[in-house]
Amino acid sequence: MSISRKKIKSELPVFSTASLPDIVFMLLFFFMVATVMRNDTLMVDNELPYADEVEKLDKKNMVIHIYVGKPSSRYKNVGTEAKIQLNDKFASIEDIKPFVLEEIKSKPEGLRPLLVTSLKVDKNTKMGLIGDIKKELREVDMRNINYTTKIGEVTNNF
């Protein structure tokens, strides 16, 4: 009886871990390809709304990012009102013009008309602030804008 037991035990399959590196590499490549290194550390909540009539922003280096949202939990000391973030700093509405002009200046002259301002706005922001930003952008003639969104049905917004 004891012999037969031993036999069963020895027949337990041993699974090979030889393919483990392959699986890990596969995951690694996926993340390497999917990763977009973010230049700015987000200081505001940035839950984007959904939309489906979207276009892709092709030229990554021809995009000016403006983030808008409530300060995230680490920055509660600046209040709970929606704020604008330019680069790594909170900014006020007057800072937009110099910031955008600086960005335009840093690009070669021929490519300047291709510049796009990407507005990454938290979905709970009030439109008043967005309207003010758009007014500022109009005044510096930075007219191509992109309301950056997640891709999905608009009904996901509600």
């Binding site: 390497m32 999917a34 109009r138 007219r143 969104t149």
Partner: peptide, 29 residues
């Protein structure tokens, strides 16, 4: 080594969206 790299990319990934509704603003006032 692969695990190490994988964990690095896992942590640093922010799957960023670069899609959106493009619009053109009217000319300055």
């Amino acid at each position: 080594i692969a695990f190490l790299l994988l964990i690095f990319f896992l942590v640093s990934t922010t799957i960023d969206t670069d899609y959106g509704i493009s619009r053109r603003l009217p000319p300055p006032p």
